[in-house]
Amino acid sequence: MFAASDLRDAFSLSRAKTLRTGVLSAIVVAFAARFLSEHYGAPAMLMALLLGIAFQFLHEEGPCRAGIDFSARTLLRAGVALLGLRVSWQLLSGLGAGAVVLTVLGVALTIGAGILGARLLGRGVRFGVLTGGSVAICGASAAMAIAAVLPRNEHSERNLVFTVMSVTVLSTLAMIVYPMIVTALGLDTHAAGLFLGGTIHDVAQVVGAGYMVSDETGDVATVVKLLRVSMLAPVVFIISLVVNMKGLGGTDSQRKTPLLPAFVVAFLVLAAVNSVLGIPEAVANVANELSRWLLLIAVAAVGMKTSLKQVREVGGQAILLVVCETVFLGLLFLGALLLRPGL
């Protein structure tokens, strides 16, 4: 279901021996990040990224390099594909047309705001798409999926690490602040869940913020968040389409972006299977946990490929851009909910 080269990498015995050391290194970092997250309350993605950066020397010339590259690319795509099992038509149909339209509009406008903001701040369109998409859809997971189809340059790894780090930190802050906002404004259960699910970046923080308010708010927030997750496939498809139309994928066939990347096809197929046949809860839980681990390992590997010095070079304008995108999305939802209370 993934690219042929990915399958050859995964199942070739000689290739597996080459990848083993680097993949195991990324797994160890991911386990350490999960331990710190569970015992000290820090976001697992952020911990994996920071620990990965600390072990950046492993990606230098040596036995770990190939496995780390494999983890950052192929394991990432497998983890994103498995997110499709979290989405189904039945889950999303109960939201109501107004909530669906607002959520979809929020994704589109936030990405547009990211592109516009990047231009105003002297940043490239790619950076605007990357940050806008990660804020609009599902944080670190979206950032990594979008980065996988964007044309690459010498700043790609640095920008990805910065984006994952910044949206994770902002999402954690939003998990603390946003429940206080909905309580202060007196939003009802549905409106509060729509706001929290539509504006907080990462799934885990949405769940935490929603159930911090009430069980009903948490249920609505989770469903709205999954609607945003489902937007990942069409957004990546559109990006791939634009890249191909503009010829930005490069002349090397290995660098060309497929019109519909294999991991996006897998995402859609799994979502369709879940919608039509229904996936047993036990299977869905296992797939969800596997997806979380694959993404955590991939984030650790991305950190191992990037030095902290490179991240510092992104600059204050980039931080301003991500903060503005976050504020824009929050104000968009608040404005809509206050003007149209029945959404």
Rank of each mutant, 00 (worst) to 15 (best):
V169G: 10
V169L: 10
S171G: 13
L173N: 00
A174H: 00
I176E: 00
V177S: 04
V177G: 02
M180A: 14
I181P: 01
I181F: 02
A184Y: 04
L185H: 04
G186N: 02
G186M: 01
T189I: 00
H190W: 01
H190P: 00
H190D: 05
A192T: 00
A192Q: 04
G193Y: 08
L194P: 04
F195Q: 07
F195M: 12
G197T: 04
G198W: 03
H201M: 06
H201W: 03
D202C: 10
D202E: 14
D202A: 12
V203W: 04
V203G: 11
V206T: 06
V206E: 06
V207Y: 03
V207H: 03
G208L: 00
Y211T: 06
Y211H: 11
M212R: 08
V213T: 02
S214N: 08
S214H: 05
S214M: 00
D215G: 15
E216F: 06
T217P: 05
D219L: 13
V220T: 12
V220I: 13
V220N: 07
A221L: 03
A221I: 00
T222R: 13
T222I: 05
V223F: 02
V223P: 03
V223M: 03
K225D: 02
K225V: 03
L226D: 03
L226E: 02
R228Y: 00
R228G: 07
M231K: 09
M231P: 02
M231V: 05
L232H: 09
L232E: 09
L232C: 08
V236R: 12
I238T: 15
I238M: 15
I238G: 15
I238C: 15
I239Y: 04
L241G: 14
V242A: 12
V243R: 08
N244S: 12
M245E: 08
M245N: 10
L248Y: 08
G250H: 06
G250A: 07
T251C: 14
S253L: 12
R255Q: 15
R255T: 15
K256C: 04
T257M: 09
T257K: 11
A262K: 14
A262E: 09
V264Q: 10
V264G: 14
V264M: 12
A266Q: 11
A266V: 09
L268E: 04
V269W: 06
L270G: 15
A271C: 06
L277E: 07
G278K: 13
G278W: 07
G278E: 11
I279C: 14
